[in-house]
Design a protein around this nucleic acid. Structure first.
Lengths: 187, 187
DNA sequence: AGCATAAAAGCAAATTATTTGCTTTTAGCG
DNA sequence: CGCTAAAAGCAAATAATTTGCTTTTATGCT
């Protein structure tokens, strides 16, 4: 009896996943959201709809899966010399990317899925970025606020406003960053 | 030519809306989420599916519409004598309600809808609750932080953690409230 | 009050999406 | 080099959604 655990890289399973993901991205870029259906994605990817339904369950799970991949950071936060300016630069870029049309749609897709693991992953992507900035600060011997303080003080307000109200402006982001820098080192 | 603007209270339109909303709530309480379909809601409400599709567009918009109604606060925040304890009591209840299974589902429904107005409304419900607490503080002659400071410092972190990670615990909420109370009166 | 009108609901056929049972392909294993 | 289990294809069956047309109904006007 041959027992396996997960799909191996390069196998058929991985190829289907790749072509479906690519098809979704292509279609999202060229069509209205409501026009992007499972049968359309299947045709674009060269697979049958039942393959998609069996692997992902429904359109929302697939969209969430694709969105998580696209939200994965592809760069290390820039090193500007200090925790404060690193965080400021990162937060400005984060706010801008997430406020954009595509950014908002990806967040929506992730949150709309039944499976909450995508949202958790995205949160961790962000946390890791901040941890990177924090580790550099530590190496420099700087004082810097706790990562969770930054999540609460900078990330959460940016995301809350993108999701529930108008996008935060640059001045607002700046204020959030400054306030979290002022947090006491050890509460 | 008879010209009208919107549906009048008590008209047929309002009755259909009421029975559909009620049907959705009944079904959400008794069925798995994926089992709640437009045809099922229509049958429960005693209307035809096409009525629902024409009025709401799709299931998600309808669920969002119902969720917004359910998220509308039905009580004024309790008056405990000071801004700090009012806010603490309110935040604890808010975190608990929103972290619950039904609370999380309602938020998800609101955010998943294409029409972003539901999220905006929910944000305003919350803002109004905090404004009520702030107005009472003003009448007492207390100092208190700006409402937007509370939105950023208390509401946003609670909501962010509910949406993206584990629900915040009571100690965390308490810390958030204390921190926002310490904010300087005029930045 | 009674008629005219526009908005909304019902109905049913057409279309589209989803599910499912069964067959075929494929990658990895001995 | 065949065996096996997982995944994909195929196609029929089911379910959801859309749509054109008819009917109902609340309201404004005379």
């Amino acid at each position: 009896m041959a027992t396996r655990e997960g799909p191996r890289p390069g196998g058929r399973s991985a190829r289907v996943q790749a072509s479906v993901h690519k098809a979704v991205q292509t279609l999202l870029a060229t069509h209205e959201r409501t026009e992007v259906t499972v049968p359309l994605i299947a045709a674009e990817a060269g697979v049958t709809p039942s393959t998609i339904y069996r692997r992902w369950g429904d359109l929302q799970e697939l969209l969430a899966d694709v969105a998580v991949e696209r939200l994965r950071p592809d760069m290390v936060p820039v090193d500007t010399g200090s925790f404060g300016s690193d965080l400021m630069a990162w937060a400005e870029q984060y706010a801008e990317e997430m406020s954009s049309g595509p950014g908002r749609e990806m967040i929506r897709d992730v949150l709309a899925a039944q499976d909450g693991s995508g949202a958790y992953q995205c949160c961790n992507f962000t946390r890791q970025q901040i941890e990177t900035i924090a580790e550099r600060a530590e190496e420099r011997g700087e004082f810097f606020p706790d990562v969770e303080t930054v999540m609460d003080g900078v990330v959460a307000p940016i995301m809350y406003r993108i999701l529930f109200g108008g996008a935060p402006d640059a001045a607002h982001v700046e204020r959030l960053v400054r306030a979290s820098l002022a947090a006491k080192p050890a509460p």
